[in-house]
């Protein structure tokens, strides 16, 4: 169970994010600039909230009153960045190994082989990120995240830099990855179609304020009927 209850003052509004997420993936749904990515960055420890609590099972990741603020390195939160943020000067293998550079060499090589096979990256081991397609970059980024054995998975607009056709091919693939992962997963998206195919529940975020958790299908039907009465 991941529990988030934080506040952070930003230029245009104050982010007030209150979320709970267990083993079923949760979507954070809202327009761009509504504070979705900022919420993820606070969970990952990249940004520091002004106050509040972030707790993962019995581990406190952040607590402003108890002055706890674990660095990102100790949070074990896997973050899939919008543009994937692959290290440009490392090969595909190098990128994946960066996620587990503390493991002993032999174990690391074994894990690397596993991940290369699992994410269908055979033959690309020595290529640089700038020679990969969008879909390939995403697979490398996912392999790199799983190399670091995260306990939480944060997906920040995972399809935004892919074309529509590829996106609909990749949705089942991502769904399976989330299912196999089995841990707390939060998906950030502004596309209700995408959310509907991946997350049964969502929270709508408007100007930094999250709504109570809603049933995705119900909201989808509501939006659809609004369209039909136009």
């Amino acid at each position: 169970m991941l529990m988030v209850d934080i506040e952070k003052r930003l230029d245009r509004y104050t982010l007030k994010a209150r979320l709970q997420c267990d083993n079923s993936p949760l979507a954070l749904f809202g327009a761009s600039g509504a504070g979705k990515s900022m919420t993820l960055k606070c969970i990952a420890g990249i940004e520091k909230p002004d106050k509040g609590v972030i707790q993962l099972n019995d581990r406190v990741l952040f607590d402003s009153e108890k002055k706890i603020n674990l660095p990102p390195q100790k949070r074990r939160v896997g973050y899939l960045f919008q543009e994937y943020a692959l290290f440009p000067d490392m090969t595909v293998s190098g990128n994946i190994k960066a996620g587990m550079h503390k493991l002993p060499k032999q174990e690391r090589e074994e894990r690397l082989r596993e991940l290369i096979t699992r994410f269908q990256l055979d033959g690309m081991e020595n290529r640089r990120p700038d020679t990969l397609s969008g879909g390939e970059k995403q697979r490398v980024a996912l392999a790199r995240i799983f190399a670091s054995s995260p306990e939480v998975l944060l997906l920040d607009e995972p399809f935004s830099s892919l074309d529509t056709l590829l996106k609909y091919q990749l949705i089942p693939y991502i769904r399976e990855i989330i299912a196999v992962f089995g841990g707390e997963t939060i998906l950030v998206s502004h596309d209700i179609e995408e959310v509907r195919r991946l997350c049964p529940a969502l929270s709508v975020i408007t100007d930094g304020a999250t709504s109570t958790i809603k049933d995705t299908e119900a909201l989808y039907q509501q939006i659809k009927s609004q369209y039909e009465t136009l």
Partner: peptide, 18 residues
């Protein structure tokens, strides 16, 4: 330098000097 790369490194557990 794209700071996102450093953020990515930190979420992967890499030390700041690495």
């Amino acid at each position: 330098f794209d700071e996102t790369l450093a953020d990515a490194g930190r979420t992967l557990g890499l030390s700041n000097s690495y």
